[in-house]
């Protein structure tokens, strides 16, 4: 098991975003998280790499536990549990790569620069080493010819593919995707999904928050349906989309089709 989250509670000032969630991911698994907006799926994803800090619960990534807090334990002024010190935390977070809805590429760096910056600075790789790996990754996402282009001159689909390559460049144990195609034109979501399918076929461990039913059906080993901060139902894509058990999921799927 590469990721294990137990009894996760996340409270924002006036809402409980995650309500006692247990969630784990096996090596090589592709997990899709679906659910209505505000159901806590992005929050859950962001807890994995500490972009959001939980109120209580235990998270173990690649054998390292970075937070283990009981409900009612000491909290800081932002209402967050006690985590490992920042330095150790950053090292563990490096084991994840993240792709955002709005790409968040660094606009002042070329595509190759975006990909190579963290491996050079954080992992201390030489420029040649980082660039060699960077070119392999650009090749993988089909953008080798854009190596010296700035992100501002790429289309949304191209930006997102560079962002995937950037995430992969740190050789993460697990890739996190936060609605990677939601900001794209329907016509170009395909190019991003194809890259993600390729990764899934290579047994990259992935957690994908998505609205793309087709993608979830085709590549997800497991689909999780969340609502109101809780996991309502989970199972294979056939089970979730073909034979939903809970009323809430049936309702949600019904609204997708209409």
């Amino acid at each position: 098991m590469i990721l294990e989250m137990k009894d996760i509670i996340k409270e924002f000032p006036n809402i409980r975003a995650l309500d006692d969630i247990d969630f784990s991911v096996d090596e090589g698994e592709t997990v899709a998280i679906i659910g209505p907006s505000g159901s806590g799926k992005s929050t859950l994803l962001r807890c994995i790499n500490c972009l959001t800090r939980v109120t209580s619960g235990k998270i173990t990534l690649d054998g390292k536990t970075f937070v283990d807090a009981k409900p009612g334990g000491p909290l800081n002024k932002n209402h967050e549990a006690k985590y490992l010190p920042d330095k150790e935390l950053l090292e563990i977070c490096c084991e994840t790569g993240m792709v955002f809805q709005h790409f968040n590429l660094f606009p002042h760096m070329t595509c190759l620069g975006n990909i190579c910056y963290a491996p050079e600075k954080v992992k201390g790789r030489s420029k040649q080493e980082a660039e060699k790996r960077g070119m392999e990754l650009l090749d993988l996402v089909g953008l080798a010819d854009k190596r010296d282009e700035y992100p501002g001159r790429l289309s949304g689909g191209q930006k997102q593919r560079v962002a995937i390559a950037r995430g992969l460049a740190m050789d993460p144990r697990i890739m996190l995707f936060d609605e990677p195609t939601s900001a794209l034109d329907p016509e170009i979501t395909g190019e991003v999904l194809n890259v993600m399918k390729k990764l899934a076929n290579e047994k990259t461990t992935m957690v994908v928050v998505t609205h793309e039913m087709g993608f979830a059906k085709e590549v997800a080993d497991r689909v999780i349906f969340m609502d109101h901060g809780a996991i309502v139902e989970q199972g294979s894509a056939e089970q979730i989309y073909g034979a939903p058990k809970s009323e809430r999921l049936k309702e949600f799927l019904g609204s997708l089709i209409n």
């Binding site: 950053l90 977070c93 490096c94 955002f100 968040n104 660094f106 910056y117 963290a118 954080v122 995430g167």
Partner: peptide, 12 residues
């Protein structure tokens, strides 16, 4: 989002 991307890459 720039800070988030930097954090997710492990930048100090």
């Amino acid at each position: 989002g720039q800070y988030e991307a930097a954090h997710s890459l492990g930048l100090s």
